[in-house]
Measured scan of single mutants.
Amino acid sequence: IEEVKKIVSEIQSKQLTRITINGNTYQVNSPEELVEYVRKVFS
């Protein structure tokens, strides 16, 4: 979970619009959307 928080804060600070998780690239339009992807991947 700490690793996830680190990734999320990194993305928020860079305002990235794409994230790659487990080889899948997602278009991310908002931090909320990012959190949803993270929940799916780590749930």
Rank of each mutant, 00 (worst) to 15 (best):
N29A: 10
L16C: 13
F42P: 00
Q12Y: 14
T20W: 05
T20Y: 05
E3T: 12
I1N: 11
V38C: 00
K6S: 09
V41K: 05
E10A: 07
T20R: 04
E32H: 06
N24R: 14
N24H: 14
Q15A: 12
V8R: 05
T17H: 06
T20S: 05
I1C: 12
E2A: 12
L34K: 00
K40H: 12
E3F: 15
K14P: 09
V8W: 05
F42H: 03
V8E: 04
K5F: 12
R39D: 03
S9C: 12
P31K: 01
I21V: 06
V28N: 11
E36D: 10
I21S: 01
P31L: 08
V35R: 01
I19C: 05
V41Y: 13
L34D: 00
T17N: 06
S43M: 12
K14S: 09
T20K: 05
P31I: 07
N24W: 11
K40G: 08
E36Q: 06
S13Y: 07
E3S: 12
V4E: 09
V41N: 07
E10F: 10
R18C: 14
E2F: 10
E3N: 11
V28H: 15
E32S: 07
V41S: 05
I19S: 00
L16S: 03
V38L: 08
Q15V: 04
Q15Y: 07
L16P: 03
S13R: 12
E10H: 10
V41D: 02
R39F: 13
R18D: 04
V28T: 14
E3L: 14
I21N: 00
E36V: 09
Q27H: 08
I21Q: 00
S43R: 07
I19H: 00
V35I: 14
E32C: 04
T20H: 06
I1Q: 11
S9Y: 14
I11W: 02
P31C: 09
I19M: 04
V8I: 15
P31D: 03
F42E: 02
E33F: 07
E32L: 05
Y26C: 07
V28K: 15
K6C: 11
L34G: 00
K6D: 07
N29E: 10
S30R: 05
T25P: 03
E36R: 04
I19V: 10
N22E: 05
E33D: 06
Q15S: 09
S13N: 11
R18A: 13
S43E: 12
P31Y: 09
I21L: 11
E32D: 09
F42W: 07
E33L: 10
T17Q: 03
S43D: 10
I21P: 00
N24F: 14
Y26T: 06
E32M: 08
E10I: 12
I7P: 00
E10G: 03
S9K: 13
I11A: 02
S30F: 06
K5V: 10
S13C: 11
V28Y: 15
N29F: 06
E10V: 10
P31T: 10
V4R: 03
T20F: 07
F42S: 04
I1K: 09
K5H: 13
V4H: 06
K40F: 12
E33H: 04
R18V: 14
R18T: 12
K14D: 03
E32A: 08
K40L: 11
E33I: 03
V38E: 00
Y26S: 01
E3P: 04
I21T: 00
T20G: 00
N29P: 11
V35D: 01
I19W: 06
T17C: 11
E32K: 05
E33T: 03
K5G: 11
R18P: 01
I11S: 01
R18Y: 09
L34I: 01
E3V: 12
V8D: 02
Y26G: 00
Y26P: 00
K14R: 07
V35S: 05
E36I: 05
L16E: 05
I11R: 04
L34A: 01
K5S: 13
V8Y: 04
E33P: 00
S43G: 11
Y26K: 04
Q15W: 08
L16A: 03
K6E: 07
N22D: 09
E32V: 04
L34P: 00
F42Q: 01
Y37N: 02
N24I: 15
S43K: 10
N29K: 08
E36G: 03
G23S: 04
S30M: 04
R39G: 04
I7Y: 10
K6M: 09
I11Q: 01
E3W: 15
S30H: 05
S13M: 12
S43Q: 12
L34F: 02
V38N: 00
E32Y: 06
V8M: 08
E10M: 11
V4G: 02
R39V: 11
P31V: 12
L16I: 04
E36K: 07
K6L: 11
V8N: 01
E10K: 05
V35F: 04
I1M: 12
I19Q: 00
T17F: 08
S13Q: 13
V38K: 00
I1E: 14
E2R: 07
Y37E: 08
G23C: 04
K6F: 11
Q12W: 14
S13H: 12
K40T: 07
K40V: 05
V4F: 15
V28Q: 15
N22Q: 06
V41H: 13
N24Q: 14
G23H: 03
S9E: 12
V28P: 01
V38T: 01
V8K: 02
N29Y: 13
L16Q: 03
P31Q: 01
R18F: 09
L16G: 08
K40N: 08
I11G: 02
V4L: 15
Y37A: 10
N29Q: 10
L16D: 01
I1Y: 13
S43F: 13
N24S: 11
K6Q: 09
G23M: 03
V28D: 13
P31E: 01
E3G: 06
L34R: 00
V4C: 15
T20Q: 05
E36P: 00
V41Q: 07
V4S: 05
I19G: 03
V38F: 04
K5A: 14
E10L: 12
T20E: 09
